[in-house]
Amino acid sequence: MTDGPIISIRGLEVAARSRHGMLRPLRGIDLDLPRAATTGLVGESGCGKSMTARALLNITPSPMRITAGSIVLDDGKTPPVDLAALDPDGAPMRAIRGRRLAMIFQEPMTAFSPVHTIGNQIAEMLLIHEKLGKRAAKERSIEMLELVGMPNPRQHFDAHPFKLSGGMRQRAMIAMALACKPDVLVADEPTTALDVTIQAQILELLQRLQQELGMTVLLITHDLGVVARTTRRVAVMYLGEVVEETTTEALFDAPRHPYTQGLLGSVPRLGSRRGKRERLPAMRGSVPPALAELPGCAFHPRCPKAVAGLCDVVKPRMAEVAPGHRARCLLYPEVLAASVALEAA
């Protein structure tokens, strides 16, 4: 077993040509996923979080495709493999998808087939990847439903998705994702469609399963409260790029990128200005479309700290601005030096 990250993403780009120009939802992602830990991926809608998740499993929606970069999976048991270099429909990628990499989708109703039972869809994973017989696959599926806290798992094995509540469907989705005990679980907004009580139950379940099974989890969310409670490291995305990445504690204690500072500043805090109505600061503007090609820093049109003639001209590069803390902002000498050096090369 190696000590390095189980997944190492470098220079990952996803793009598609349209009649309006080149769509570029991912513009050079660099990100490591440490083993047996939960990493958060946050940002506003349109920043590329879900596209990153789909790129990991090589299931980008048509006509989007991976155009550059690498996604190296190194489980420490088999030779490292670059997922980005595999044919999305080829046998090697299909063998990895579901068996070593699994995904929990935001809305399980769109992921489950409405005409097949929950149990049969979970058992299918075991029939394909584990080569179990039908009886053994059924029993393992029932065990997985029990593991995720599904009431009456044997009875619900024969239930269709539309007969289950939102929380129960999400538990069934988690059971299907974990059926083959994958090394890496990608959870894309797994609680967005659920009420607060069920959301807390699902998050607690994911935490427990991650610890019990020793999985690596990439948790994609827009909820910074969820990130604070459940993750060890956090990466912040903006317009298809990671703009800050560090430990969860460091991000909340001392955010370095103005975008991260804006996100954290817009979150209500308990105990602040007690007894008074507080108006939260809001960032101006919104995330540009994936077609946008902005000079300099992509965030500079919205940034309150932007420096004319610098932030709108020089493309910032990721650099370490504190031990274990990387950011993509030209206001830090380390970033500016790296960016200017790269442009001059």
Rank of each mutant, 00 (worst) to 15 (best):
T2D: 13
G4H: 14
S8I: 04
R10E: 13
E13I: 08
H20E: 13
P25L: 00
L26D: 03
G28D: 11
I29L: 15
P34I: 00
A36F: 01
T38P: 03
V42E: 09
G43F: 05
G46M: 01
C47R: 02
G48Q: 00
S50Q: 06
N58A: 15
P63L: 02
M64K: 00
G69S: 10
G69T: 08
G76M: 11
P79A: 09
A85S: 15
P88Y: 03
R100G: 07
I104T: 10
E107Y: 03
P108A: 03
P108R: 04
A111W: 05
F112N: 09
P114Q: 03
H116N: 13
T117H: 07
N120R: 15
Q121T: 10
Q121H: 08
A123E: 04
I128F: 09
I128W: 07
E130W: 01
K131F: 00
L132G: 01
G133K: 09
A136D: 14
A136F: 01
A136M: 08
E139V: 13
R140S: 00
L147P: 11
P153K: 07
Q155E: 15
F157P: 10
D158T: 12
A159I: 04
A159N: 12
F162T: 12
K163W: 08
M173P: 12
A175C: 08
A175L: 09
M176A: 15
A177L: 12
K181D: 13
L185N: 07
V186Q: 05
D188M: 04
L194S: 11
D195G: 11
V196W: 06
V196T: 14
Q199N: 12
I202E: 06
E204S: 14
E212Y: 07
T221E: 06
H222M: 08
D223V: 00
L224W: 04
G225S: 07
V227K: 06
R229V: 07
T230G: 05
T231P: 06
T231E: 02
T231C: 14
A235P: 03
V236K: 00
V236I: 12
Y238P: 06
L239H: 13
E245A: 15
A254Y: 05
A254R: 15
P255G: 06
P255C: 10
R256V: 09
R269Y: 08
L270G: 12
R273V: 14
R273N: 15
R273D: 14
K276E: 14
E278D: 13
S286N: 08
V287L: 05
P288E: 02
P289K: 05
A290L: 05
P295W: 05
F299M: 08
F299D: 01
P304F: 06
K305F: 07
A306T: 10
A306P: 07
V307W: 08
A308W: 05
G309V: 12
P316W: 00
E320I: 03
P323F: 04
G324L: 09
A327F: 01
L330W: 06
P333L: 04
A338E: 14
A341G: 10
